[in-house]
Amino acid sequence: MTAIQTINLTKRFKDKTAVNALNLSIEEGELYALLGVNGAGKTTTIKMLSCLTAPSSGDAILLGDSVVTNPQSVKEKINVSPQETAVARNLTVRENLELIAGIYSFDKKAARTKADEMITAFSLGEVVSAKANTLSGGMQRRLSIAMALISNPKILFLDEPTLGLDVIARRELWSTINKLKGKITIILTTHYMEEAQALSDRIGIMARGELKAVGTADELMAKTGAKTFEDAFIALAADSEVGI
């Protein structure tokens, strides 16, 4: 079943078109990486899909609901891990988790149970009673992603989830994301080519607000004749950026 279908999804800001007639289709349980250089339109696409900004034209259907006509239903099914760490500073780790669970309509008992699950899954047990503003950057990032998962989202948006993490924390997070594959639909944006290659089922490459290519890492390498995925990305994204 299709989890996300965009139909000529477009976003214009005054005289600039950030996303131009985007048509993409993502299957349920798929991990889809959206790649592109800065300003390619990835974040604007994510913002439209997560109902944070309304499209100028076109539409996106997420599990049967339109982001234009029924954003509230879409919001019930999705969750977002923003690019920057997004935690409540003066709340403890457990309070942060239970807060998000409560916002997604879990009752107190269920919220506590879900928080326990996330604390275990993300190894947050040692800092469970610590305020978020006292945690290290890596721990805050872990908490931030746990907060995105606590609502059992059917679609999860991970915007550069490993940005700023050390190599061990990054690998741990990769392992966590890998465990989610097939269970929920994940849209991942990242600037790390090896991350996209290691984690995603398919990769979409955006440039100048348009989807330039879609396929597995191997398919994109074959398409461009590149030896590495990074070369394939450069061939597809950078060429478009300079208008070749």
């Binding site: 920057e84 916002i103 997604y104 907060m147 995105a148």
Partner: peptide, 13 residues
């Protein structure tokens, strides 16, 4: 921060 962004994407009205 991105905290409000996260909440804006939630079902909070």
């Amino acid at each position: 921060t991105s905290y409000l962004l996260r909440l804006f994407a939630s079902p909070l009205t």
